[in-house]
């Protein structure tokens, strides 16, 4: 299954980036990645600056480099695709190690590899320094509609439980000698998934009853939460300000 995404990426540490209010982190990550995405691919120097920046970011957040490298494998299929671009792209052809490749295509490869790697690394740092409910809270501070964040909250709370239910059923099947190797042997495992859906739905009904019992009237209550203060916004802004400046200079220069 490649890299499973069941395991949250959060790494428990005490760094300024961990402590920063989630809404500030979300805005900074989005704005920085957008600046990177807009940077012309020919401005190699700009990507060098980005690389140094995220290296500093990883360091500050105390995220192990190995951890980042392992998580970066989620973009591997796209990198593989990017590596093929020069061979299939049209336009001016150049010789590379005796093979004819497209000049545009080579730039295309570089473009995808550089931007995908930087973008994914920023996402990894965001996820490694922010617990999931915090991310959702940041989203609601940023005015993401309440039903969306509320649904996401329940999803995050129960996904491990649901995955465990599915896992237990599979273990029970394996314990009785089930070892499917072909698609047409998938029926029992799909039936387990169906049963899990029914259980999930019924749990939803019980959770709803439990919420009603405690006075739920259709909207999740506002709880006491800290909001990002001025200095946090300023500190978090340093990342996108740097990114946008570099991107703008790169746009003008190239």
């Amino acid at each position: 299954m490649g890299v499973g995404h069941a395991h949250a990426l959060y790494i428990h540490e005490h760094t300024p980036i961990h402590r920063m209010a989630p809404e500030a982190k979300l805005v900074a990550a989005f704005a920085f990645v957008a600046a990177v995405a807009l940077t012309p691919r020919e401005a190699v120097w700009a990507f060098a600056i980005y690389a140094v920046t995220i290296a500093v970011l990883i360091r500050t957040a105390r995220v192990p480099a190995r951890f980042v490298a392992v998580r970066l494998t989620t973009i591997a299929p796209f990198i593989v695709f990017a590596l093929f671009i020069p061979f299939i792209a049209s336009g001016e052809q150049v010789e590379l190690l005796g093979v004819s490749v497209s000049r545009d295509g080579l730039w295309g490869t570089w473009n995808v590899v550089a931007k995908a790697t930087i973008g994914a690394t920023v996402s990894i740092v965001l996820a490694a320094t922010t617990e999931i409910p915090e991310i959702l809270r940041g989203m609601s501070v940023l005015r993401v509609p309440a039903p969306l964040t509320a649904i996401a909250l329940f999803m995050v709370r129960y996904m491990e439980l649901v995955a465990q239910e599915l896992g237990r059923m599979r273990t029970a099947m394996i314990a009785r000698g089930y070892d499917p190797r072909w698609l047409w042997q998938a029926k029992p495992i799909a039936a387990a998934a169906g049963a899990t859906f029914v259980r999930s739905y019924e749990r939803g009904e019980r959770v709803h009853a439990a919420m009603l019992a405690r006075g739920y009237a259709g909207a999740m209550p506002e709880l006491n939460h800290r909001r990002a203060n001025r200095s946090e916004w300023l500190m978090s802004a340093s990342l996108p300000v740097l990114g946008i400046t570099v991107a703008l200079v790169a746009l003008v220069v190239t």
Partner: peptide
């Protein structure tokens, strides 16, 4: 409720305990 997992639906204990009085 019988299954505490049905009753504890918020991300952490304090928020869950606050759910009722906040309502």
């Amino acid at each position: 409720f019988q299954d505490p997992d049905d009753q504890l639906f918020m991300p952490n204990v304090a928020e869950d305990v606050a759910f009722g009085p906040a309502n």
